[in-house]
Each structure stands twice: as structure tokens, then as C-alpha cells.
């Protein structure tokens, strides 16, 4: 199971990576914005994307839409992890077809729960 963690903040990337390692996932690729994430997705297969929303160059919402709009990656699970907590934001994320949504600051339990939920729904 390979994860792609996308966040412009090195701190947040490290926190998410650390949490994933605690959950037992050790194949993790990192990108600092949506554009770099798309390059990574083209370069190597990834099973799960965890992305921030607010990023320069290409934000997480745009990345999600690009993933959904691209045949080979359209079914990729995308979990949005962001400080954005307005209802309008959630609606936009739904429209972009993210699989789930976590607000920062998060607890590892919430992150694990969301990942498991997405995996269960993908397996079903």
C-alpha cells in the first residue's frame, strides 16, 4: 500500500508520514504541492492520496479534480486534510469528489478511522 502525502508544510508532511508509519504503512511518497503530486503520480503508482487544501501552484482541490479527471487515476482514494472547516469548503470538496475530509488539527485516531473507512468502501 503506497501513500502519497501532499502538503506544502514540511511539518505537516512529517506529521502525516509519522502517523502513517505508526499505523504500519511504510511506503510513502511526498509532494509539496498539487503540481508535484501529479508528477509523482505519473512517475510511480500510488494507492492512496492524502492532500492538504491550501498549497501554492496547485491546491488540493485542484489536485483532486485533476486526479478524478484523469483516466488512470480517477478511482484513486483521496483524503483531504485541511484547516478549512467552512461548510462551503466541505461542499466544494464533495463536488470535487474527495473520499473523505479531516480538519486540522487532527488526532491519529481520526486519521486512521478515515483511512480505514475509505479502504473499506473501496474494497466493497
Amino acid at each position: 500500500m503506497k501513500f502519497l502525502v501532499v502538503d506544502d508544510s514540511p511539518t505537516m508532511r512529517r506529521i502525516v508520514v509519522n502517523a502513517l508509519q505508526t499505523f504500519g504503512y511504510d511506503q510513502i511518497v511526498e509532494a509539496q504541492d498539487g503540481a508535484e503530486a501529479l508528477e509523482k503520480l505519473k512517475a510511480e503508482p500510488v494507492n492512496f492520496v492524502i492532500t492538504d487544501w491550501n498549497m501554492p501552484n496547485m491546491n488540493g482541490l485542484e489536485l483532486t479534480k485533476a486526479i478524478r479527471g484523469n483516466g488512470p487515476t480517477s478511482g484513486l482514494p483521496v483524503l483531504m486534510v485541511t484547516t478549512r472547516g467552512l461548510k462551503q469548503d466541505i461542499i466544494e470538496a464533495l463536488q470535487a469528489k474527495v473520499n473523505n475530509y479531516v480538519v486540522k488539527p487532527f488526532t491519529p485516531q481520526v486519521l486512521k478511522e478515515k483511512i480505514d473507512l475509505i479502504m473499506q468502501s473501496m474494497a466493497a
Binding site: 479527471g69 480517477s74 463536488q95 469528489k97 473520499n99 468502501s121
Partner: peptide, 19 residues
């Protein structure tokens, strides 16, 4: 839409072509 089971009717042809 959010579970990924069946996508909402969203026109993504333009974006797919662009991507």
C-alpha cells in the same frame, strides 16, 4: 459520491482532456 461507489453526474470530460 464521497464513498466512490458511484460518481455524481459531473462533467469531467473537459478536465480529463485538459489533463
Amino acid at each position: 459520491a464521497v464513498s466512490g461507489a458511484s460518481p455524481v453526474e459531473v462533467s469531467v470530460e473537459t478536465s480529463a482532456a485538459a489533463l
